[in-house]
Each structure stands twice: as C-alpha cells, then as structure tokens.
C-alpha cells in the first residue's frame, strides 16, 4: 500500500497536511442510517447543530436540510434530539 503514497522527497516537510479531511469519507462506518420524514420536519436545524460529523447541512437555496451520507457515521444523535421525531434510524 505504501508504494502508492508519495516518497520522502515529494512530501512537504514537518508533516504539513496536504489534504482536507473532506476527501476522507467516513460514511461507510455506519450501521444505522437516518431517515427523515419530510412532513414532520420543521427545519429547526437542531440536527444540523448537533451532528458531530458535519453530515447534515442547511441548504439556503432549497430552504431545506440535506443529509450527506458520505460523512454520516450513523450515531443517531439527530434522531434522538429531533424535537418533532422526524428522524428515525434504520438498520442498513
């Protein structure tokens, strides 16, 4: 595997990071997937605020929230905190 990585002459010194973790997808960690009931959702953004993984975003153009499953680790905080119980966790 290490052969794919850059050699010591190619990388910046001192371990200055070269990639944003946005390109490291953690979505495949999950066992449970959040499912949102759009009718129950009041767009209060509680889930956006509490998500530890930045996997739920407010999209101003759509005036709606959007789940980014490529980061969601399926912790279920969103479902637990949703004041209208609009989110349920489903076993993958």
């Amino acid at each position: 595997m290490t052969s794919k990585n850059k050699n010591w002459k190619e990388i910046a010194p001192a371990g200055v990071c070269s990639k944003s973790s946005k390109s490291f997808l953690t979505g495949d960690w999950k066992t449970y997937t959040p499912i949102r009931d759009v009718k129950k959702c009041v767009r209060c953004l509680t889930c956006v605020i509490f998500c530890p993984d930045g996997a739920i975003n407010w999209v101003p153009d759509k005036k709606d929230i959007e789940f980014d499953m490529s980061y969601c680790k399926g912790c279920g905080i969103c479902a637990n905190e949703c004041p209208t119980k609009a989110i349920t966790m489903k076993l993958e």
Binding site: S20, S21, K22, S23, L25, D53, G54, K73, C75
Partner: peptide, 11 residues
C-alpha cells in the same frame, strides 16, 4: 472544523 474527521460515532 471539517467533516471527514475520524471521531467515533456520537462523539
């Protein structure tokens, strides 16, 4: 603080 960090689920 960007997504893609490797904290445990529910951290």
């Amino acid at each position: 603080f960007l997504p893609g960090h490797r904290a445990c689920a529910g951290c």
